[in-house]
Amino acid sequence: MAAAAAAGAGPEMVRGQVFDVGPRYTNLSYIGEGAYGMVCSAYDNVNKVRVAIKKISPFEHQTYCQRTLREIKILLRFRHENIIGINDIIRAPTIEQMKDVYIVQDLMETDLYKLLKTQHLSNDHICYFLYQILRGLKYIHSANVLHRDLKPSNLLLNTTCDLKICDFGLARVADPDHDHTGFLTEYVATRWYRAPEIMLNSKGYTKSIDIWSVGCILAEMLSNRPIFPGKHYLDQLNHILGILGSPSQEDLNCIINLKARNYLLSLPHKNKVPWNRLFPNADSKALDLLDKMLTFNPHKRIEVEQALAHPYLEQYYDPSDEPIAEAPFKFDMELDDLPKEKLKELIFEETARFQPGYRS
């Protein structure tokens, strides 16, 4: 834990890192770190609560700039109880001085990944967590956004079992017609939660990839272990087919990539493993919904509104309290091709509203 900075004593240090967030945020305490930044909790002297502050230093890398800009653009436009918001952003007053960006968010005690390492969940908890994931996802999908990296560590939890989806750095506007060349190379989302079509096709992607990830998360809540822990690309596919069985001819016809289709045709026939054999203690309604989410063919996979209306979630289902976005989200430009200098300018502009004396 960093010592509390005395008023006016300059930035606090946390594990050798400068955290320049005073005077409003003090009493910093280390939480963890990701690929390009550290997260601390801090005391907000204005709202009198502890908050989470993520320090991001992305400006050396085009990919990190892209992810940072995506996350900020999306989260500043989203407003939903099951999606983490941005409360404040701290950065230098000029673009030349801006080396880091500090993002202030609600402090959540833990995440689903940490929880599943230590606790076996009751059916009631599984049901409530799944409902909140789908409630947040309904809003995301209504904005025409794909999260693309749903996994237990991106689901934040607090002691009252509130759940918030975080990390929109890989999110995209849904565009089933656009052929994202190089899709697989830039697709760094965790393999275990990846839909089979991501490994088999490169053309376009749809909201059904997020539903697949939610199915993987439900299976993990039922058993405290990942359902498809593939060691590499082909191993991942083999794990999936080992449980779902061989795809039907109709399902194979959806695979545009001939090499991928021929690979699947070359494999020995596998039978589907019954879900109640894998999860003998699970609620039968939970397994019915799991089956509809972990469907090989993305066109037959359940959609988020149908999933919310499934009998497993009937005690929570309330369409009048499951809000959607006001308007579909649009990125003005494809960020993939922009140089990091341009992305830095866009991050600077996007964060201006939090600067003292800002006038829109």
Rank of each mutant, 00 (worst) to 15 (best):
I126V: 13
G230R: 00
E96F: 06
E96A: 10
R67K: 14
F331N: 06
F296T: 05
H180W: 08
D337H: 09
L338A: 09
S41L: 10
N257Y: 15
G10M: 12
R261I: 09
L218F: 14
C161V: 06
Y102V: 05
A4C: 00
N144F: 07
V14H: 08
F331E: 05
N87Q: 03
M108C: 04
Y139F: 14
D149N: 12
G136Q: 06
N154G: 08
R225K: 06
Y233G: 05
A282M: 02
F354V: 12
R148H: 04
L163R: 02
L265D: 09
S202A: 12
W212E: 14
I56L: 11
L107R: 01
D179N: 14
Q306K: 04
R261Y: 09
G215A: 13
Q236M: 09
R277Y: 07
A352L: 07
Q62C: 13
P23R: 01
Q315T: 07
L294K: 04
L146M: 11
H125W: 05
D20S: 12
Y128R: 08
L338G: 02
E33Y: 01
P93G: 03
I89M: 04
L156F: 06
S142G: 04
K340H: 08
H80K: 00
Y317N: 14
Y312Q: 11
E109L: 12
P176K: 10
P226D: 04
L335C: 02
Y36P: 05
E303F: 01
E334H: 00
E305L: 05
R353Y: 12
K207Y: 13
L28G: 08
L264D: 04
H239D: 11
L278S: 04
A6G: 09
D283G: 02
D106P: 01
L289P: 00
D235W: 02
P319S: 12
P152G: 03
K138P: 09
N47D: 14
G230A: 01
H180D: 10
Q355T: 02
I72T: 02
P58R: 04
V49Q: 10
Y205I: 04
A352I: 04
L287F: 06
Y36M: 06
L150C: 06
N123Q: 10
I227K: 02
L76P: 02
T181S: 15
F228T: 00
P247E: 03
K342H: 02
Y312A: 05
E109T: 03
Q132M: 06
L157C: 12
S57Y: 14
E314K: 14
L112R: 01
M199A: 09
K117R: 13
E250M: 02
H299D: 11
Q66Y: 03
L116K: 03
G357W: 01
N45T: 11
R77A: 05
M333C: 03
V14G: 15
K270D: 06
E81Y: 06
L155V: 01
K99A: 11
T110V: 11
N154D: 04
T206L: 13
L134Y: 06
Q306H: 14
T160D: 07
K48C: 12
N154I: 15
K138L: 11
G182N: 10
V46R: 06
I31S: 01
E81H: 11
A286I: 00
V39K: 06
K164S: 08
F329Y: 14
R353M: 14
Q105F: 06
T26H: 10
P58A: 04
L338R: 01
D88I: 00
V51R: 01
P339V: 10
R261A: 10
L130R: 07
A42S: 14
S360D: 12
K203Y: 10
Q62K: 15
E334V: 14
E81I: 07
I347H: 07
G242V: 11
H232Q: 12
S153Q: 09
Y113G: 08
L116R: 03
A327Y: 01
N297R: 11
P339D: 12
R172E: 12
I324L: 13
T94I: 10
A2W: 00
P319D: 10
A3H: 04
G230I: 00
D162K: 01
D283M: 02
P229R: 07
R225V: 06
A4V: 12
L264A: 03
Y263Q: 07
N281S: 08
N45M: 01
Q17P: 09
K342N: 15
L134T: 09
E197Y: 09
I240H: 04
D288V: 14
Y233S: 14
T181C: 10
Q132F: 08
Y233P: 05
L156V: 04
F329C: 06
L290H: 07
R79V: 08
A143H: 06
A352F: 00
I86F: 15
I89Y: 03
I209H: 11
T118A: 09
Y263L: 14
P274I: 02
E349V: 13
A282N: 00
L116A: 10
L121T: 05
D167P: 02
E33P: 03
I31G: 00
C254K: 06
P268L: 11
A307P: 06
N27L: 12
P311C: 04
L75Y: 00
Q62N: 07
E96L: 02
L157V: 07
V14W: 09
S248K: 05
T68C: 01
H178C: 11
F228Y: 15
L289T: 07
E314S: 02
L237Y: 11
Y30D: 02
S213D: 09
I31P: 01
S248I: 05
I103A: 07
P176A: 09
L287Y: 09
G22C: 11
P274Q: 15
P339N: 12
Y102P: 04
R277A: 08
K48P: 10
E96H: 02
I243G: 03
I256K: 11
L146T: 04
L287R: 04
Y233M: 14
C65G: 02
S320P: 05
N123I: 14
T63Y: 10
L289E: 04
F78P: 06
L184N: 11
K285T: 09
K207N: 12
P176W: 09
R359F: 06
N276K: 15
R353V: 13
C166W: 01
I126W: 09
I86M: 04
I240R: 05
N271S: 04
I86P: 00
Y205C: 10
S29L: 13
N262A: 08
N253L: 13
I140H: 07
I72E: 08
E322N: 00
L244T: 01
C161M: 08
A282D: 14
K270G: 09
E60H: 00
R79D: 03
E96C: 03
I211Y: 13
V273N: 00
R277M: 05
E334Y: 03
D288C: 01
Q306T: 02
A174H: 05
T68H: 00
H141V: 13
K207C: 11
C127E: 12
N45V: 07
G182L: 12
P268G: 03
E109D: 15
N27T: 10
V273P: 00
A219K: 12
A174S: 15
T185M: 10
A219H: 07
Q17L: 14
S248W: 07
Q355A: 02
L76W: 00
Q97N: 05
Q236R: 03
N144M: 04
L112M: 14
V21T: 13
L112W: 01
L115M: 10
L116M: 12
R191S: 08
K54P: 06
D20W: 00
I95E: 09
I74L: 12
F296D: 04
M13P: 14
T190N: 10
N262E: 10
I243Q: 05
Q97D: 11
I140F: 15
P356N: 05
L69G: 03
R79M: 06
V49F: 05
Q315Y: 07
N27H: 09
P323G: 05
N123R: 09
S208P: 07
G10F: 12
D251K: 04
L28R: 05
T206F: 11
P152L: 10
R15W: 15
C65D: 04
D88P: 08
P93Y: 03
K54N: 14
G34E: 13
T190V: 08
A309K: 04
N276W: 04
R148N: 08
C254S: 15
L267F: 01
P152V: 03
A195W: 04
D336Y: 14
Q17E: 07
R135V: 04
S223P: 12
H125G: 10
E81R: 10
N123A: 10
I165P: 05
I86E: 04
N82A: 10
K270M: 14
R261M: 09
E350P: 00
D336N: 13
G34K: 03
Y25G: 06
Q17Y: 08
A327K: 05
L264K: 00
S360P: 14
N82S: 09
E334R: 02
K344G: 12
F183H: 06
H141C: 10
V101G: 09
S153L: 08
Y317K: 00
R261N: 09
G357Q: 12
L218K: 07
K231N: 14
D179W: 06
K48I: 11
E305I: 02
Y64S: 10
N253T: 07
P229C: 04
S360Y: 15
D283W: 00
W275R: 15
A52G: 01
V214N: 12
E250T: 00
P226N: 00
